[in-house]
């Protein structure tokens, strides 16, 4: 059955501080559907985690629990040492430190690219406009689209929009970045430009948790790959062992399906 890595359960409680994210015995149900089953996961500061698995396996739900876009019903989640509870204040503090990049970008269509990037720094961090603009331009340069700053999202290609979305998250200077299938909605030729940005980010020490099927990306930057199925963590390992030497039948089947097509 489920093989849990040794490190998970023991020191979790006492050492929550040294982890970016800890999840302990987390369960979630959608009505009667058991979406997350007994999730235990510790993410170290600076670690890059790749989560993969078939659709409906709960991987998106798992990372969406980390910033409370979804509410877990049982167990305990701490982010940067703060426990997620019903306290909206805590949730807002955590959300400030956790950036999220969505599958469908979710840029604000009524605002320009620059305004998309400065909105949260100005309204959440109370940053002066000039400073927010400077930081936004800096990150737009990082994702290589400073020249699009005054356009609207609808005028950009999918790959450009996703890079804006990444820049928008970075403008809040988050400590943790969550990626929810960031390349799944993109045309193949645009996937690379987004992955390049993500790989570059990974080299800069930010904690990253990515739900993705980009196995090349997983092998390049991942410290750990987590395989989920049916709401459970089936297997986790370093990328080399995960791909070359999968332990579980379901993992093997999944890998053979996504690698041989």
């Amino acid at each position: 059955m489920t093989q849990k890595p040794e490190s998970v359960n023991e020191e979790t409680k006492s050492a929550a501080g040294k982890y970016a994210v800890t999840m302990r015995d987390v369960h979630k149900w959608y009505g009667k559907f058991h979406a997350l089953k007994n999730i235990n996961l510790n993410v170290e500061v600076g670690e890059k985690i790749v989560i993969c698995g078939p659709s409906g396996s709960g991987k998106s739900t798992l990372i969406r629990c980390i910033n409370r876009l979804e509410e877990h019903q049982q167990g305990e989640i701490t982010v940067e040492g703060i426990e997620l509870s019903h306290d909206i204040k805590n949730i807002e503090i955590i959300r400030r430190e956790v950036g999220m990049v969505f599958q469908h970008f979710n840029l604000f269509p009524h605002l320009t690219v620059l305004e998309n990037c400065t909105l949260a720094p100005i309204w959440v961090r109370k940053m002066p406009l000039a400073e927010a603009n400077a930081i936004a331009m800096q990150y737009l340069e990082r994702v290589k689209i400073p020249e699009q700053a005054d356009k609207y999202p609808g005028q950009l290609s999918g790959g450009q929009q996703q890079r804006v979305a990444i820049a928008r998250s970075l403008c809040m200077k988050p400590r943790i970045l969550l990626f929810d299938e960031p390349t799944s909605a993109l045309d193949p030729e645009m996937i690379k430009e987004v992955l390049d940005v993500m790989i570059q980010l990974a080299s800069e020490g930010i904690t990253m948790i990515c739900v993705t099927h980009e196995m090349g990306f997983a092998r390049t930057v991942g410290d750990r790959v987590i395989f989920m199925d049916n709401g459970e963590i089936i297997e986790e390992n370093n990328p080399d062992d995960f791909f070359l030497n999968p332990q579980h039948e379901r993992t093997k089947l999944f890998l053979s399906q996504i690698l041989n097509h």
Binding site: V98, M100, L107
Partner: peptide, 8 residues
Amino acid sequence: EAADSMGL
């Protein structure tokens, strides 16, 4: 969700 995830 995007608005929420920013902490607005």
